[in-house]
């Protein structure tokens, strides 16, 4: 990939960014397109995510495998698209994991495989009742992004992200302890 001296971020990060666009740009577009009204808006979303990464690269992405990087970038594109749509006062179709048989299937298989099935079930229950925007923010944070970085990536204020993270952790903790559980 192409490296250039004038880059605002180090050359190796810029090379990574080029690779991300080549490999994941299309999927990011598709993920964003579900939430915005036209292709041009989805393209803007993809551009905005890459702009945010160019402004400040997420160090945690350097050591991840492509699968994890793709997941991370798709979450960014999705959230950015939702934020974009909501600013334009459109009705935003936020997908409910409960409605998808695929999710249920994947969850069942996971619960079977994990040692503490009860804990997995509680976690899944907590996720079912959680706004995906909260769980997405928590996911990005646990993947290594800071509050500021998440805010920049999603085009939100840091305070908004802090609130989402607080709500996500509270709901998660509550669901796991309330059901007679084994909090960490």
């Amino acid at each position: 990939m192409l490296l250039f001296l004038t880059a605002a971020i180090p050359g190796e990060d810029l090379a990574l960014l080029n690779g991300f666009y080549e490999r994941f740009g299309g999927a990011m577009f598709r993920a964003a397109r579900r939430y915005v009204q036209n292709d041009a808006d989805a393209e803007d979303v993809v551009h905005d995510v890459f702009s945010a990464l160019a402004e400040s690269f997420i160090p945690a992405l350097r050591d991840k495998d492509d699968e994890a990087r793709l997941r991370f970038l798709l979450v960014c594109a999705k959230n950015r698209a939702i934020s974009f749509s909501s600013r334009q006062s459109r009705i935003v179709p936020v997908p409910s994991p409960m409605l998808s048989k695929a999710f249920v299937h994947a969850d069942d298989e996971l619960a079977e495989r994990m040692d503490d099935r009860a804990l997995v079930r509680k976690l899944l229950g907590a996720l079912d009742g959680m706004d995906p925007l909260y769980s997405d923010a928590l996911f990005l944070q646990l993947e290594g992004a800071s509050v500021k970085e998440i805010a920049r990536l999603l085009g939100e204020k840091p305070e908004t992200i802090k609130k989402r993270l607080h709500r996500a952790r509270k709901l998660l903790r509550g669901a796991i302890t309330e059901q007679g559980g084994t909090e960490e």
Binding site: R30, L74, F103, M114, L123
Partner: peptide
Amino acid sequence: LFLEVYGKRLDAEFAEAI
């Protein structure tokens, strides 16, 4: 555990886009 469980959900959610 959250990362693993939620990661699976995200994979299923984005499977169509990918």
